[in-house]
């Protein structure tokens, strides 16, 4: 069962520059900041209430995030729903015939994650996440 909005993903050119607004002006606390090599992104999570804002900065040009930035510029990239069990959510989506990007959950900044194809949601990219017990 989906519990809440875990985060919204925002693609940025430069996470350090973006944090001048999100961290410095808004005062949001950074809960994670690391490069995910296999996805070619630097991800920064900032806490806001029970949710987070995830800044995504491409670190190379051949990734989906880099292509999003090249074609659309900076902006909102995806919405992530939190679940207690991402495997169950993924199987539920598959059973409903929802087009998937990830056939099985993988490790991401928010925990175990998977993405659904935006075509399944009128063009909106949706992620499911189950945070790891030890946090980010």
């Amino acid at each position: 069962m989906l519990k809440k909005i875990h985060h919204i993903g925002v693609v940025v050119e430069n996470a350090d520059e973006a944090m001048k607004f999100y961290r410095d002006a808004l005062g949001l606390r950074v809960t994670a900041d690391r490069v995910i090599e296999d996805q070619g992104v630097r991800g920064v999570l900032l806490e806001i209430g029970g949710s987070e804002i995830e800044l995504l900065q491409p670190t190379r040009d051949d990734t989906g995030v880099a292509k999003f930035l090249q074609s659309r510029g900076e902006g909102m990239h995806h919405i992530c729903f939190e679940s207690d069990d991402v495997d169950v959510e993924l199987e539920g989506a598959r059973a409903k015939g929802i087009q998937l990007i990830d056939e099985k959950p993988r490790l991401g900044l928010a925990g175990m994650i998977c993405f659904l194809h935006p075509k399944a949601n009128h063009g909106v990219l949706v992620e499911f996440a189950t945070p790891l017990a030890e946090g980010h």
Binding site: I5, I48, G49, G50, N121, H122, V124
Partner: peptide, 27 residues
Amino acid sequence: IEAQYIDHIVISSNDSAATAKLFADNF
């Protein structure tokens, strides 16, 4: 600023009723 929480996220659509129903069904 002491922002408390995300109050709302806007999903705009050329048919908001259809998109709302799709999200309701999918999730």
